[in-house]
Amino acid sequence: MAYPVGYLLYLAFHTYRPLSSSEMKPAGLQNFAWLITDESTNRSLAVTLKFTVASVTIEMVVGTVCAVLLAQFMLAVKGRLGRIYSRVLGSAYILPFAVPAIAGAFAWKMVLDAQFGPLNAMLDRHTPWLVDYALAAVVVIDAWKMTPFVIFVVLAAVLSIEPTQYEAAELDGAGAWRRFTHITLPSILPVVTITAAFRAVDAFTKVFDTVFATTGGGPGSDTRMLPLMIWRTAITNLDFGHAAAQAIEALLISLVFGVALLINQRRGRS
């Protein structure tokens, strides 16, 4: 792991285009100078950030709500049948998470297809969703796949709250809403925050299969996320120096974020 990362750093300071010459030339900071001024890289960065904010927001909101509802449901249902059903529900949410990204991407591509897709048939129209609403579609697909992750993490947090806290509050006459805002929310907030941070880093760095298989980064560069951009620069254009510089930019951004996260976590603990 350290070797590839080191080699990546090395490449970033060299010009290496096996297509035109097999020679590797030192390039100093040229690649980084190019990086800052390159319009398509900057645009890609903006798209990736937009995607990250949108999908993580949806995942956190939907995931947290579902987790709280699921916890209430699990604790409130009575009888064997009810209990079995709440288990089935809990397992059902694993489904999107367990599906390989490429298979999920194709499933959605079919659902959203302009000519033969069920969504258009239902709405009685022929919208090419992956073209007209490309970024939104990619966000929805990612939210579909990763919301279960949030549900399970937050569910565990909700279930670990002491039931006696609720009983005491109920005796004091606190209504359901007050119990939610005064007990549930503050208890799960640390978990929710850190989950959001992890999801953000993941969404930023690991969005690849879905985009590649559905929109391919298009139309134009509307959904050309950074990982895809790096891959294209390196493998399609065989321009390793520039690609390495882009990769390091991406790493630095997630690193800044990650370090902020760590410091925050430390502070929360002490």
Partner: peptide, 23 residues
């Protein structure tokens, strides 16, 4: 700490050096 960093690397960026190495 390095393990932590490793998890934040874009997989696509590992492809760049690894591709060169595999070649």
């Amino acid at each position: 700490a390095f393990l932590m960093v490793a998890r934040m690397v874009t997989p696509a960026s590992l492809v760049v050096p690894l591709y060169a190495i595999m070649r």
